[in-house]
Structure formats: C-alpha cells, structure tokens
Design a protein around this nucleic acid. Structure first.
Length: 434
RNA sequence: UCCUCGGUAGCUCAACGGUGGAGCAUCCGGCUGUUAACCGGAGGGUUGCAGGUUCGAAUCCUGCCCGGGGAGCCA
C-alpha cells in the first residue's frame, strides 16, 4: 500500500491518513503498554504512540522502549488529532524501522554548561531552540535578498583573501600567500563594493568578515557575517532611509513567517511589532548631552561603549540612528560634514532592548585629494589603495553604504543573550572547535 | 590583553583540613495516555595537571592548562 513520506511540519494536513516519518528519536516515555516517542525530522517535533495490540507485541515494544536517543528511524502510522499530544497531532505507529542505533547521546534533557554545549555544538544544533534560532537566521538572510533585489540591487561577491586592511591592521588574520608575501582575511567587503557600485549602481555583498580582536563579550565573534550594501549617488540621508526600510522589512517578514519559532524562543514580540520607519535620529552631540544628563562622565570626542548604547536605546521604542560622529573616532573613508569638517556624515543604528550597534554606515569620501590626505594621515600603504583611489579618478560621485551584522540582528530578533547562538558554528577567541 | 569566577561520576552540582555524595543519564525491574513522565534496585571516581604546606588535602599555597562572565574595540 502507498504510504507517503511526509514532514512533521505538514502533519495536520494528513489527519486520518497512513503516512511515513523519517527522523530521529528525540525523547521517549513509557507507561507499561504504551510507549511514547518524541520524534524530530528537522521540520518539527511530533509525538508517536506505540501500543501493545495489533501491530506490536509486548517483547517488540520492550525493545523499542530501549532504543537510545537520537537513533535514526523510519516510522509508519496513522495521523490522529489528539489533545493530549504536544502540537495537537500524533502518529499512531504501526511500523518502526530502525535505520541506526545511536550510542549514548551526550546532550541530556537537564541543564548543561555553556562549555559543554559549545563543545557539542554539532549535536546541540538538533535542539528545538537552536533549530528555531537558525530557522529565523535563514529567514533574515532570505528577507535581505528579497528586499534588496526588489529595490534593484545586484549581489556582488567580495573577496575573502585581501592584500590590505581597511580597518586597523592590528585586527587582521594574516597568512602566507605564495610568493606574494602576506594575505589577510577580509574584515569588510566595503572597498570592493565601492568599486562595484560604480559599475552596477546599487550593489551588496553578504559575506563573512574576520576580526582578530581579542574581544570576549556576548556581542563579538572573530568570524561573523555582514551585509554590505553600497549605493552610487546616495547621500547620508538616502543611506539612513534605506537602512530603516530594510530593517523594518526583515522584522515584519520574520514576524509573518516565523511565529512558531519565536514562540519556541519565548520571545515577546510586542516590541518587534513596533518596528517600522521612520526610526528616530539623533546627532552625536545630542547623544553626548543625553548621556551627560543621565549622569555619565562621557566627553565630546569619546566613542560609545555597550553601556552608553543601551542607555540611549532605552529612550526609544525602535532602533535609533546616531549620526555626525567626530571624524577622529571613525574610519578614514568617511565623508566630512561640509558645515563642520570635525564631523563625518555617518550613522550607527542602535537596536532596542540593549542589543547594541547593528549597523554602521556613512557617505564615503569621493574627492581624490581628500582621500589621499586621509590615507596618509592614517599611515596606510598608498600602493595598496591605488585601485581605490582610481575610483575617485574615473567618474567619481557621492556614494554611501553600510554594514549590517547578521548575528547581532538575529540575536536581537530572537531575544537571545549571546550572539554565539545566532551562527551555526561560532568562532571565538578561545573556541575553534567544532 | 586586563579584571573576575570556576574545573569533583557521562551531565548538573554538593562536600570547604579528618572514610567523596545527590539528581539526571546508563543498566535491570514495575506501570494501559505519558508531557524534562513516574516508582523500586544496581553499576559508575587517580577530585584539570605539576609541585608545596600538613600526621592527614577535593578543600590551604605556588605555577601551568582549559573554560565561563565582563571591559576596551567593533558589526
């Protein structure tokens, strides 16, 4: 008889039908004559009941009850609506085929330390919670592509191996590159996106970025994913409008398509529902005054740390832009404010609820001589930037772009404490395994 | 890199100078609807490593190794 292989996600559509599930034993319980399996197949979790009777004798059931957790199984049975089953539907099993018997599974139902879970990240991914987070990450990335493609952007892949730094050289991962000396893992695709936007108009890359910062905080990874759009003829205000529209679109799409995952994570979605344009905008000067009013000892010219960002974001119910920073705390390529050259035409976007900076963006310097000066002031090797200066030589124009941190964005949407859970295999200062 | 906390059974922890225990997991038994099921029994240890103090060290001291939390910096 025909018995379709179906996914747990779609189980309610098959009520009353005989189906086949293929997956893994996530948990089991027994009550004498009935064995309960909690079964997962990657799309969800479902309860399977196996009873003594027409399909199983007492001995067979006893053996099935002893199956180790995470054994791979193919189970056939009838789909039944059942209030007592988690999820409202269960499979009344008629046949169990054991594909493989697992060794004793290290991840248990009770508590584990962070160290143990990270050491077993390859297995931890199977948990409900990690599954939900990475499904939301998938949606965030898909929504980014959908939004930008809809706005006429072209995806241009940036190189991972690069000849020089675009941020500070102290945070570069270096490696030997044949006879050409040192190469470095990319910290950002931005400079290449600037070249690409002069060829395609509006472009973006979505790529890993590597920073050898010895950071040990819940907001840092040594390898993280960054979205970097770059737009020719956009000024700093066009730039911010694009950012708020993109972020709002991502949030609304996750709310629309990933309600079940947000529920698994017990995320309060009330604050997320409020995320829509326009976002509040304050200048760096206003931010400093706000912090001083709150009694912090910050001085004009200081950059903001996590605490300062949190205090500012608490004043608003959606992400907040801070723009016009002092030039000397920001990168060399940022366009000075024509009205006050001490400031740059940049913006940082601070996520609510203490999640910190998720975007850094700016209008870029498009004047060749000014850019040459900045490269010299920052003691950057001029030869390495020859091609970058060329962009100012051949049809230069105002242009802007930004970088959005994928893991920080996912962590914020999921309401999770540490960004290491927002990436499948996190790379941190003291962790390279698995 | 700095500050801070920790490393004891497979896992999470207790014992804090005097014979290393518990819960979960595992194994055996029981239970006809379980929801981290429950009930009974059993096995399981060179207390991260190396030195030192002491009659005696998981416990106190020194060094090292490995992690957790935080800072600076950033997305």
């Amino acid at each position: 008889m025909e018995c379709p292989w179906v996914s747990i996600e779609k189980l309610p559509d098959w009520e009353g039908k005989e189906v086949e599930l293929r997956g893994w034993l996530a948990n089991r319980r027994s009550s004498g004559k009935v064995v309960f399996f909690v079964f997962r197949d990657g799309t969800g979790f479902a309860q399977i009941t196996l009873s003594v009777g027409a399909f199983f004798d007492k001995e067979t059931l006893k053996d099935l009850e002893r199956l180790p957790l995470e054994s791979a199984l193919v189970v056939r049975g009838r789909v039944r609506k059942e209030e007592r089953a988690p999820g409202g539907y269960e499979l009344e099993g008629t046949q169990v085929k054991v594909v493989s018997v697992a060794d004793e599974y290290p991840i248990q139902k009770k508590d584990h330390s962070v160290e143990f879970l990270m050491e077993n990240r390859h297995l931890w991914l199977r948990s409900r919670r990690q599954n939900a987070i990475l499904r939301i990450r998938n949606q965030v990335v898909m929504s980014i592509h959908e939004f930008l493609q809809g706005q006429g952007f072209t995806l241009i892949d940036s190189p991972i191996l690069t000849p020089a730094a675009c941020e500070g050289t102290t945070t570069l991962f270096g490696l030997d590159y044949f006879d050409l000396g040192k190469a470095y893992l990319s910290q950002s695709g931005q400079l290449y996106m600037e070249a690409a936007c002069m060829a395609f108009g509006k472009v973006y890359c979505l790529a890993p970025a590597f920073r050898a910062e010895k950071s040990k905080t819940r907001r840092h990874l040594t390898e993280f994913w960054m979205l970097e759009p770059e737009m020719a003829f956009y000024d700093w205000q066009d730039n911010m409008r694009l950012q708020e529209e993109l972020v709002s679109f991502i949030i609304q799409e996750v709310l629309r398509t990933k309600a079940r995952e947000l529920e698994i994570l017990e995320r309060d979605i009330t604050p997320l529902k409020k995320i829509e344009p326009p976002f509040p905008r304050i200048t760096y000067d206003e931010a400093i005054r706000l912090l001083q009013q709150k009694g912090l000892s910050v001085q004009w010219g200081d950059d903001f740390g996590g605490d300062e960002e949190s205090i500012i974001s608490q004043e608003f119910d959606r992400p907040v832009f801070i723009h016009h920073y002092p030039a000397r705390v920001k990168a060399f390529y940022m366009q000075p404010d024509p009205e006050n050259p001490q400031l740059v035409l940049n913006d940082d976007l601070i996520a609510p609820e203490g999640y910190g900076e998720i975007i850094g963006g700016s209008e870029r310097i498009h004047d060749m001589h000014l850019l040459e000066e900045r490269i010299a002031e920052h003691h950057l090797p001029r030869e390495a930037f020859a091609w970058y200066l060329d962009l100012r030589r051949y049809g230069t124009c105002p242009h802007s772009g930004f970088g959005l941190g994928i893991e920080r964005t996912v962590a914020w949407i999921c309401g999770i404490h540490h960004i290491r859970e927002a990436i499948p295999f996190p790379r941190q200062i003291y962790r390279l395994y698995p």
